[in-house]
Design a binder for these strands. Structure first.
Lengths: 204, 204
DNA sequence: TGTACATCAGTGAACGCGCGTTCACTGATGTAC
DNA sequence: TGTACATCAGTGAACGCGCGTTCACTGATGTAC
């Protein structure tokens, strides 16, 4: 922690490399502390091995780092989810694979997962069409689509499907956040949880 | 915020009054900021209208205040839940009433509700029998009991009932935390959520 | 090929701030006589 | 009823710390000629 690693300065045009390192360090810090408030410019700089003011070359201020970390995380979650859904052909298998991938993502970075949904203060102020908002809804829309394709669409109207998807979403999210928070509860595996959560929505 | 209210000093033996005021202020601060990290001794003192060091008369340190806030919150949740369950006689109505009360509690203090479950750092270090731990499990046990009495106990073994209760718990928790975090999602009411969440567990 | 210069990634010192905690204290309240 | 004293709820100043941000800067990298 005291020994600052020797660091080669980036070549011209490679500024993006430092940017990526800053994001990575901030992301690890969130995962380690479970709190985006503990991401300080100075701690991030220490971890990257640069002087604190160097960060201003890449981010307008402290909050810009945090915003960028979460945007990156949502893009990554979206990608993971889409890949899992598309790895199957049967509609119900697609839904199930998506839910499992969702819980696995949360399991790999539990703190980041929790905070990325709950870091709302700045989000609430954004306009409806903002990319950050779109990104967040996109994750939910993947789930809605999978539910819709899984549930026989004949039997439900669109509204109904979305309401079902919301409850599934809530159950996944609850499991994903409570499991690391209450390890003594003896939680079932993600796969078992998905089976139970989807029990009433998937035809057997 | 600048105008510190005139404050009558407590009589001897009434120290508990200041203690309660400190807890109240800390609790409001958590609810307002959504973050227990923002509970600072100085801000709490400002809100109560006392000098910061006066707090040390009642709490060992900053963390002791936060612990006390959450213990109080869990005791209150437990009481609310128990009262709701006991207000009904039909087993399924009891479960449903408990779940609705749970979501209503979360709705009334959304930030405090979220943080009280997720403020885990110090909890994980406590021994199994610690009152704080017992308090937390107690809330879950109320739910388990209600589920067990609702589901016809003939059909399930004990383990099965607990697993079902965990998923219900996760769904309630997910709804309770996501709804305030993502208001634009257009969430259903707590009652509608409970109906859906319990759909597969309650005989119609 | 060599040199003067522009660029720009990154630095180091400094600022003012709010924090948790300590310490010696004050002065209203209550009590012994 | 009056007075001297003990108690104790609460104070005010001070400490050292880490923070976000600013500013004038340095010096390696790349380029024009």
């Amino acid at each position: 922690m005291n020994a600052i690693p020797a660091r080669r300065r980036n070549r011209r045009g490679e500024g993006a490399r430092l940017r990526a390192e800053i994001l990575q360090a901030a992301s690890e810090l969130i995962e380690k502390t479970g709190n985006e408030q503990s991401v300080s410019l100075r701690e991030v700089a220490r971890r990257v091995g640069i002087a604190a003011p160097s960060i201003y070359e890449h981010f307008a201020d402290r909050d810009a780092i945090i915003d960028a970390v979460f945007d990156t995380a949502f893009a990554s979650l979206h990608e993971t989810l889409a890949a899992a859904v598309n790895s199957e052909t049967d509609p119900c298998a697609r839904l199930s694979a998506g839910c499992c991938a969702y819980l696995r993502f949360a399991e790999e970075h539990p703190n980041q997962y929790r905070v990325m949904w709950l870091y709302q203060a700045r989000i609430l102020a954004l306009p409806a069409g903002h990319p950050t908002i779109t990104l967040r809804f996109g994750v939910f829309e993947l789930l809605v689509t999978a539910v819709a394709q899984c549930a026989d669409a004949q039997h439900y109207d669109r509204t109904e499907i979305r309401e079902q998807a919301k409850i599934i979403f809530a159950a996944l999210h609850g499991y994903a956040t409570l499991r690391p928070a209450l390890p003594r509860f003896g939680w079932m595996t993600p796969e078992a949880a998905v089976t139970r959560i989807l029990a009433s929505y998937t035809p057997v």
